[in-house]
Amino acid sequence: MSKVAIIDQCAGSDVRAESPMHHVKVPSVAANPGVVLEQKPFLGHMTLRGNSADDAFCAAIQQVLGVALPLQPSALVHDASGENSIQWISPDEWLIVVPGGREFEVETALHQAYSGHFAIVTVSGGQTLLTLSGPNALDVLHKSTVYDVHPRNFPVGKGITSNFAKATAIIRRPSEDVWELIVRRSFADYCYRWLVDASREYGVSVKV
């Protein structure tokens, strides 16, 4: 018997799923919106814990995900397809985001590839990813987080966890003009309402 219980938690595409923002009201789209807010629902989110000083652990990640485990604090790396990413969260914690439904396969493969002490936990139901873009995206971030999001301090390929209004969020910059926010399910409604409110003066377009 495996020493860790892994189950495929996905019910398949024919079973109705509701994202954390299933219920929200979407405001009418402003002309020339300064802020574009979009949810990328139903992605596969996994928390990875482990010892990056162990080369075998790093090699297993590389083998399973096709991306090297980022060792620099706050680094965010994607694979060539751009669909699989790993973000450094803390010295022994990373966030893996993959297309929804791949979690079981990744968990299983990692346990096969590496038998040392580590943990991988699927958290796809517990959080969701939003993208924030548009000419005023930075202004909205200034209103929302105490973290320094200036490009000099926050280059492409960085991701951090910080406060977001009165909640917390993972804030990441996968490309020049796009910011990603990962918020917890139970705070998603609050964060969404905060974002729409903060964007209002710039005009906002929302897709959930």
């Binding site: 938690q9 996905c10 019910a11 079973v15 109705r16 799923a17 509701e18 994202s19 954390p20 299933h22 139903f42 699927t122 796809s124 139901g125 517990g126 399910r185």
Partner: peptide, 9 residues
């Protein structure tokens, strides 16, 4: 206990 996206179903 189910993954929260399926809770309503």
């Amino acid at each position: 206990n189910v993954q929260a996206n399926y809770a309503m179903r």
